[in-house]
């Protein structure tokens, strides 16, 4: 397999400006054929903007995107047949039946008329919606709508499937169902790109992850590779009384010579931590009469990775998700 055959999508120093604002600053990555590639980042990181450029909905200000060997600035219509896309919002025509929803997309993808019914029936079967085929999609549950949306995005049998936050807003059960579905598609050889704000989703579902923030790739790799960048071994988290934070910081820094990061109300020690080290730290704190509320050793999580790279927890930055998003849309809040 030659070098370029290995990749489904190659992105070279992509940049997108909206007026003076640089939503995507400098993004480069390569997505391997048949992998689940996750783009993880907080609200406004530039995830959707990047996807829109891959999809040909937005023209990059500069940079290059190669999809299955085609340059997407030149061979857009060829590429569109290769990519299936599921939008962030679930898009089905709620007044139309599941069948009509699929028929319309089959036609929009120029599937020959004599093959449409067969394709539509197959898709209904895949989505487990045969018995609801002729019911208006608006009456479906959220999970059913998303399944319909997914098979609709794949009616043309694409090689690549792009999912923009496929599980945002789903309950745990539907989320796990969606993960299973995505893994099943990978097993059929489809390359999958998804964006997410959920660390555990990136961790458990994605083969490789790119963490982006402020329009830049902060890190890229498998979940375990990324975690190793935080610490080779364990981390130590300590929570102390709010009043004693400064004192604790001093002890950790000058007495114990430990490296740490402050995350939410925790101190996270990133030196290679073992049992002896943990006990030493605990004893030193007790000697100084620090009121330790929690102390514990754990392996790095995606949260730690995110924390290290962006300097904030993803929960802070995504905070009140819906409200933040709507306010941003109305132009009420700008970027940090």
């Amino acid at each position: 397999m030659s070098q370029s055959d290995q990749y489904s999508i190659e992105i070279f120093s992509l940049q997108k400006k909206f007026g003076d604002f640089e939503a995507v600053k400098d993004i480069s990555f390569k997505i391997k054929k048949g992998e689940i590639f996750g783009i993880l980042g907080p609200n406004g990181a530039g995830k959707t903007t990047t996807l829109n450029m891959i999809l040909g909905l937005l023209h990059p200000t500069s940079g290059k995107i190669i999809i299955e060997g085609y340059d997407n600035s030149k061979e857009n219509s060829k590429i569109k047949q290769l990519i299936g896309f599921m939008t962030q919002e679930t898009v089905v025509d709620s007044y139309l039946t599941a069948r009509d929803n699929l028929r319309i997309f089959a036609r929009l993808y120029h599937i020959p008329e004599n093959r449409i019914e067969e394709k539509v029936n197959h898709a209904l079967d895949e989505a487990n919606l045969i018995s609801f085929a002729d019911v208006a999609a608006g009456t479906f549950s959220g999970g059913m709508q998303r399944r319909l949306n997914l098979v609709k995005s794949m009616i043309q049998e694409p090689k690549i499937l792009i999912l923009d936050e496929p599980t945002t807003g789903l309950d745990i059960q539907s989320r796990v169902g969606m993960w299973e579905e995505i893994k099943r598609l990978r097993s059929k050889g489809i390359t999958i790109i998804l964006t997410t704000q959920y660390l555990e989703e990136a961790d458990q579902l994605c083969d490789r992850i790119a963490i982006i923030d402020h329009g830049k790739v902060m890190a890229i790799g498998t979940a375990s590779e990324l975690k190793k960048t935080v610490a080779k071994g364990n981390l130590l988290s300590i929570k102390v009384n709010q009043d004693e934070r400064e004192k604790t910081a001093k002890i950790l820094k000058s007495k114990l010579k430990m490296e740490y990061e402050e995350k939410d109300d925790l101190f996270v020690l990133t030196n290679n931590i073992d049992m002896d080290m943990m006990i030493k730290v605990a004893e030193e704190l007790r000697r100084n009469k620090i009121d330790v509320q929690t102390i514990g050793m754990h392996l790095p999580t995606m949260d730690d990775v995110f924390m290290k790279l962006t300097g904030s927890s993803i929960r802070d930055s995504t905070g009140d998700q819906k409200a933040g998003k709507n306010m941003a849309k109305m132009g009420l809040i700008g970027r940090r």
């Binding site: 999809l55 040909g56 909905l57 219509s77 569109k80 047949q81 990519i83 896309f85 939008t87 962030q88 919002e89 898009v91 025509d93 997309f105 929009l108 993808y109 120029h110």
Partner: peptide
């Protein structure tokens, strides 16, 4: 608003 236009535009029409 519902994203239908976007989903039309990603098709080869």
């Amino acid at each position: 608003q519902l994203g239908n236009i976007k989903s039309f535009l990603i098709t080869p029409i």
